[in-house]
Simulated scan of single mutants.
Amino acid sequence: MGINNVLLFLGGLGGTEVILILSVILLFFGAKKLPELAKGLGRGIREFKDATKEIQHDIENSVKDDSNTTK
């Protein structure tokens, strides 16, 4: 299931193109840097999700406060 989501994200790329891209990334960054890059990417995505949840929570609270004050 996880690989399907990744392939859907990549759009119309075929298997050969994905392997070529991954090979170039491996050559460019090296095997030692890839885990560090993935870790940093994961942290960035987590921070983005946390920020969006916080903003959504703030908006919901302000809507609730506005509806309570208008009654």
Rank of each mutant, 00 (worst) to 15 (best):
M1F: 09
M1Y: 05
G2K: 03
G2F: 07
G2Y: 09
G2N: 08
I3C: 02
I3D: 07
N4I: 09
N4T: 12
N4L: 07
N4G: 07
N5L: 06
V6G: 00
L7C: 01
L8E: 04
F9P: 01
F9I: 00
F9A: 11
F9S: 08
L10F: 11
L10A: 04
G12R: 01
G12D: 10
G12W: 00
G12A: 02
L13M: 14
G15K: 12
G15D: 06
T16E: 04
T16M: 06
E17A: 07
V18K: 06
V18Y: 03
V18R: 02
V18W: 00
I19W: 04
I21V: 07
I21F: 03
I21H: 06
I21G: 03
S23F: 08
S23M: 00
V24W: 04
V24M: 00
V24L: 11
L26D: 09
L26M: 12
F28L: 13
F28E: 08
F28M: 12
F29M: 02
F29H: 14
G30F: 05
G30E: 02
A31F: 11
K32W: 14
K33M: 01
L34P: 00
L34N: 02
L34C: 00
P35N: 02
P35G: 02
E36W: 03
E36L: 09
E36C: 01
L37G: 02
K39T: 13
G40L: 04
G40Q: 02
L41S: 11
L41E: 04
L41Y: 09
G42E: 04
G42V: 00
R43M: 10
R43P: 00
G44Y: 05
G44H: 03
G44F: 01
I45L: 08
R46Y: 14
R46K: 13
R46L: 03
E47I: 06
E47N: 08
K49V: 15
K49Y: 07
D50H: 11
D50N: 13
A51Y: 05
T52S: 04
K53V: 06
K53L: 11
E54P: 13
E54S: 15
E54W: 04
E54H: 15
E54F: 15
I55L: 14
I55H: 15
I55R: 15
I55C: 05
I55F: 09
Q56R: 06
H57M: 10
H57F: 09
H57R: 15
H57T: 10
D58F: 08
D58Q: 12
D58L: 15
D58P: 00
I59F: 08
I59H: 07
I59Q: 13
E60W: 07
E60N: 12
E60C: 00
E60Q: 13
E60I: 01
N61Q: 15
N61L: 08
S62N: 09
V63Q: 15
V63I: 14
K64W: 03
D65P: 02
D65F: 09
D65E: 11
D65V: 11
D65N: 12
D65C: 06
D66S: 09
D66C: 03
D66G: 08
S67A: 04
N68R: 11
T69S: 11
T69W: 07
T70M: 02
T70P: 05
T70G: 01
K71R: 14
K71C: 01
K71I: 13
